[in-house]
Simulated assay, not measured.
Amino acid sequence: MPRYHFHIHDGRSIIDTDGIELADVAQARRMAVRLTGQFFEDEADLVSLGEEWRMEVTDAQGLILFRLDFVVTRAAAVGGSVRT
């Protein structure tokens, strides 16, 4: 089975040196979504407004297969007045 690595970049880099053996890229995508949800649940207080966050999923050779990108932005109605 191929090994996939899930690297997090959010102003610092957390490199997954171990990886996880999964059947295929579709399973790696599902795992990436699960890991991202778990990260945000555990570390939500560490994500700042305007900060970019991404997870890059690579194969065993380091080739980026896909990535998940998130940007935390404040809505106009939060923390300020709303123009009508």
Rank of each mutant, 00 (worst) to 15 (best):
16 D>E: 08
66 F>Y: 12
23 A>M: 06
29 R>Q: 14
79 G>W: 09
82 V>H: 03
40 F>I: 04
22 L>I: 02
68 L>D: 03
36 T>M: 06
3 R>M: 01
22 L>C: 02
9 H>F: 15
1 M>P: 13
78 V>Y: 14
64 I>R: 01
65 L>C: 05
83 R>Q: 11
75 A>D: 11
81 S>A: 15
10 D>G: 05
18 D>N: 06
55 M>L: 02
81 S>L: 08
10 D>Y: 10
35 L>R: 12
21 E>S: 11
26 A>L: 07
27 Q>G: 08
45 D>C: 07
40 F>T: 00
29 R>I: 07
54 R>F: 02
69 D>V: 10
45 D>P: 02
38 Q>L: 07
20 I>E: 12
24 D>E: 10
59 D>L: 05
45 D>R: 11
72 V>H: 15
22 L>F: 02
84 T>A: 06
71 V>T: 12
70 F>W: 08
21 E>K: 09
19 G>W: 04
11 G>Y: 14
62 G>E: 04
63 L>D: 04
6 F>W: 11
11 G>E: 01
12 R>W: 06
9 H>P: 00
1 M>G: 15
37 G>F: 11
72 V>Y: 14
80 G>K: 14
71 V>E: 15
33 V>R: 10
28 A>N: 08
44 A>C: 08
81 S>G: 15
63 L>N: 10
68 L>H: 03
6 F>C: 10
47 V>W: 08
80 G>N: 13
11 G>R: 15
7 H>Q: 12
16 D>T: 00
13 S>G: 02
29 R>M: 07
43 E>D: 11
35 L>E: 10
24 D>G: 09
5 H>T: 06
3 R>A: 08
83 R>K: 10
